[in-house]
């Protein structure tokens, strides 16, 4: 029996103005599971990932909830111990590749640094591993890429560099924040294959943030749908695609474009659904305020 890889319970976070950005989010990711996290732009998907990794902006405050990484309560650990644990067991594929890389350092040392410093690998081992992964993410010319500065790479190459860096350490959990937005579909498919391989061989769990329901359908086992910081639906992927329960999920599904039938899709969520969501959120907030004085 293995512990739940990531267990988020009733997580609430507030902005300085007192508004909640995360509304009692609960989410459990099993080892070897790809959990898709979808939802509106600005719903708080990135916020959840940052909360887990302990890198929330200082203006956002966690007011309630627990986060357990492989059974260890992150909230009960000393800051240093927490950082070490997170550093050793998790990796992030950030949403903004260019800002996540140091503009004045070459790619090579930036990628190997983490392996050498945090995981104590030898430089040679790190280098071999990185090269192998660059090859697997279909970087054609690894020598050039390793010697380049971030701005000399294309958007998709930067994204692949960060994917390779995250995979290299074989972490227990990867928070992948829209990791394939800059990748063409053939490379994307290869990355998805790699994820499945990692999942099978090492039992890596992945929290996969994306807007692409096509990707969700192909790779995830479970899905959480987020709206305004609240999980409005959570289901097995197959069940969700067979019969979405929440009106918002249904609206998202209906709006997802298909090249086979382009004009049937891409429409805004309709007013009635939005009104329903607004009252659902308001009710949740009211209940929360009541129980928290």
């Amino acid at each position: 029996m293995s512990a739940i890889c990531l267990d988020i319970r009733d997580l609430s976070a507030v902005l300085p103005n007192g508004q909640r950005v995360l509304r009692s989010v609960s989410l459990a990711v099993q080892p070897g599971e790809v959990r898709a996290l979808v939802g509106e732009s600005g719903a708080g998907k990135t916020m959840i990932g940052k909360a887990v990794l302990g890198v929330l902006p200082s203006s956002v405050r966690i007011v309630e909830g627990d986060m357990l990484l492989e059974g260890e309560d992150l909230g009960k650990l000393q800051p240093k111990a927490r950082r070490t644990l997170i550093g050793a067991r998790t990796a992030l594929i950030p949403q903004d590749p260019l800002t996540a890389l140091n503009p004045s350092r070459r790619i090579g040392p930036q990628m190997t640094d983490r392996l050498v410093r945090i995981l104590g690998w030898s430089g040679e081992k790190a280098d071999t591993r990185i090269r192998q992964l660059l090859d697997e993410v279909q970087i054609r010319d690894p020598d050039r890429v390793l010697k380049s500065y971030p701005h000399e790479l294309s958007g998709g190459m930067r994204q692949r560099v960060l994917i390779a860096a995250a995979f290299a350490a074989e972490p227990r959990l990867i928070v992948a924040d829209e990791p394939t937005t800059a990748l063409d579909v053939t490379v994307q498919k290869q990355i998805l294959r790699l994820i499945v391989q990692l999942q099978r061989e090492h039992g890596t769990a992945i929290l996969f943030v994306t807007h692409d329901l096509g990707v969700v359908a192909k790779i995830s086992q479970r899905v959480s749908v987020l709206y305004a910081g609240k999980v409005v639906e959570e289901a097995d992927t197959a069940a969700l695609f067979a019969a979405p329960q929440h009106p918002y999920t249904r609206a998202l599904m209906a709006a997802t474009p298909r090249y086979t039938d382009p004009f049937a899709s891409l429409k805004p969520v309709d007013e009635a659904v939005l009104a329903g969501l607004a009252s659902e959120i308001a009710a949740a907030d009211q209940a929360w305020r009541r129980s928290h004085g």
């Binding site: 627990d66 909230g75 800051p79």
Partner: peptide, 8 residues
């Protein structure tokens, strides 16, 4: 969790 997280 609260006080541990609340940043000064």
């Amino acid at each position: 969790m609260d006080e541990g997280r609340a940043r000064r």
